[in-house]
């Protein structure tokens, strides 16, 4: 699914009244799986569309998305650090850092 498809899907989901969050990579430093502008949708029912980088940081994005959908109802800027060298703390090993803007609709 391209980032363009993600926006079209977002419009479709909003029309059907599904709670949905748009996550967009707005800053990326070092080695990150996807670059600035990459988008993912997180639905209140758990469905995902698009990707901001697979395993790398997606867990953090999902929990921020559900928090903003269910509790805060405000956008959130999530900082994801992928520099845990060997993944020893259960972290991700891509080597970069990124900021992801998560907004509920």
């Amino acid at each position: 699914m391209t980032d363009r498809d993600v926006l079209v899907k977002l419009r479709e989901l909003r029309r059907t009244g599904v709670g949905v969050c748009l996550a967009t990579i707005v800053e990326a430093h070092g080695s990150t799986p996807r670059t600035v502008g990459a988008k993912m949708l997180v639905c209140a029912d758990g469905r995902l569309f698009g990707s901001v980088g697979g395993g790398c940081g997606e867990r953090q994005v999902k929990s921020a998305a559900l928090r903003s959908l269910v509790a805060t109802r405000t956008p959130e800027l999530v900082e994801v650090d992928l520099t845990d060298d060997l993944g020893t703390r259960g972290g991700d090993v891509c080597g970069g850092r990124m900021k992801i803007f998560v907004e509920p609709f």
């Binding site: 363009r4 926006l7 079209v8 977002l10 419009r11 909003r14 748009l22």
Partner: peptide, 12 residues
């Protein structure tokens, strides 16, 4: 129209 909806429409 919401700007993001409008953006999707334009890009399409």
């Amino acid at each position: 129209t919401d700007p993001l909806d409008r953006a999707a429409e334009l890009v399409q």
